[in-house]
Design a protein around this nucleic acid. Sequence first.
DNA 1: CGCTTGCTTGGAGCGCACTCCAAGGTCATA
DNA 2: TATGACCTTGGAGTGCGCTCCAAGCAAGCG
Lengths: 154, 154
Amino acid sequence: MMETTSTRTDSCAAPPHPHRRPEGQDSYTISEVVAFTGLTAHTLRWYERIGLMPHIGRSHTGQRRYSNRDLDWLDLVGKLRLTGMPVADMVRYAELVREGDHTFGERFELLETTRRDVLARIAELQDTLAVLDRKISFYADAGRVAAYEGEKVR
Amino acid sequence: MMETTSTRTDSCAAPPHPHRRPEGQDSYTISEVVAFTGLTAHTLRWYERIGLMPHIGRSHTGQRRYSNRDLDWLDLVGKLRLTGMPVADMVRYAELVREGDHTFGERFELLETTRRDVLARIAELQDTLAVLDRKISFYADAGRVAAYEGEKVR
DNA sequence: CGCTTGCTTGGAGCGCACTCCAAGGTCATA
DNA sequence: TATGACCTTGGAGTGCGCTCCAAGCAAGCG
């Protein structure tokens, strides 16, 4: 078997990074990174192609060797992805990082905007949760009483 | 102009349904529903085609006339959409509703599963928020000090 | 009557985020 | 040294959720 699709380990894993090797020996193959992140090798290569990752270091024969730093970046990308941030925006952020220190302000603003988006999203979800709870208790205790959908949803 | 793309009003609108007409006179054209929901007419027709909406009532000339009930259903669909629930699952739920009372159990379970998903999603987002906050304060008070990305992200 | 606006349909097209393929080179173990 | 797992590339394909198109019908208006 090759190119495993998603060896995503249980998400209730340990907090830090149990698998990482110390600085200096931090050189991971793409399949190791697949195992750590749950991303596919395809996706990792694609991230690099579109500029969402820096160019990854290579072995003497041209194979990718990821560093701890690369893994940290992937962690951040993973988090940002969870917020629903478009890949294009993350690429933009990556570009700002590559461009150097004079982009600090812009990066800061991008993060702040994202933060506000996340807060708004959480609020939306909590709103939805309320609707869901109402509907669930409706089903739970109205048992099977004439209860068609759309009835006092809100 | 026709087929406006997104006349989404500010989301801090009034809680109930300021625009609705009383039962008996609740007959809205597709463009009215577009204005209410922020969906496009295309999307509304598509929802109907794929079975996410029941077949909508028609005028004597075959034009769609939405009822308050239809609007309620669209509200629910909008909420479920916010949770990230796939359209296919919402269609499944719609089917269960059409199939009648004997699907109560299954509907209940679907809602409960969704509820758990939403809770998990909120937790994820809060986790992300913490990362974001850390990074933001890093940018804020480290000012412009050597601060490359991936540095102690977590 | 012609013009505009708004609605109808089936089917094609689009943007995003992957996802996979084909052809070939590399590495570790027996 | 040979087998098989793993890696490389550019480019094509997929699935989702819309999004749009073309052709045509119906109503209102000057």
